[in-house]
């Protein structure tokens, strides 16, 4: 380290937070449908109805999913209680049921969800709903 540089920064560490901020500004944005899926994963029971509803709606072959159930647990936490959570995750094949929605129907996964934990709507409305209850996740597949 040169003598001059060491003198300049004497007493304080180097910082340049602008690098990350700049990158985040530069990340590309795209138009979206403006609609999303809000899921209350506290009450998702993992019943697979969304997955099969989607396979039927999109007429998908075996091993293809428009929405896929992901599971964490059951894992025992330090306090002895068990953590077990399911989240249905929309894949790249999810088109938010554009055919159904254009006819005024709900997306098939949303309608058939047995626990009634899925909502479809404008992202802004879903975000407001999301703020009123913990353990929610919002997806914007398109």
């Amino acid at each position: 380290m040169s003598e001059q540089l060491s003198k300049e920064i004497e007493g304080k560490a180097s910082v340049y937070p602008q690098a990350r901020e700049s990158l985040e500004r530069r990340l590309k944005s795209e138009d979206t449908s403006g609609y999303g899926l809000l899921i209350d994963y506290e009450y998702c029971t993992g019943c697979h109805a969304c997955e099969v509803a989607c396979m039927k709606e999109l007429n998908l072959p075996l091993n293809q999913y428009g929405i896929k159930l992901l599971t964490d647990g059951a894992r025992q936490m330090p306090d002895g209680r068990w953590d077990l959570n399911h989240i249905p995750f929309p894949t790249s094949l999810c088109n938010l049921c554009e055919d159904r929605v254009s006819k005024g129907k709900m997306p098939s996964c949303v309608q058939h969800c047995q626990a009634l934990v899925m909502s479809y709507g404008p992202v802004k409305e879903l975000a407001e709903k999301m703020a009123r209850k913990p353990k929610m996740v919002l997806f914007t597949p398109q």
Binding site: C47, H48, A49, E51, V52, A53, K56, Q111, H112, C113, Q114, L116
Partner: peptide, 13 residues
């Protein structure tokens, strides 16, 4: 059932 169905019924076809 208020419009809800399980995977078995959905797969009836």
């Amino acid at each position: 059932n208020m419009g809800r169905l399980c995977m078995r019924c959905l797969n009836q076809t």
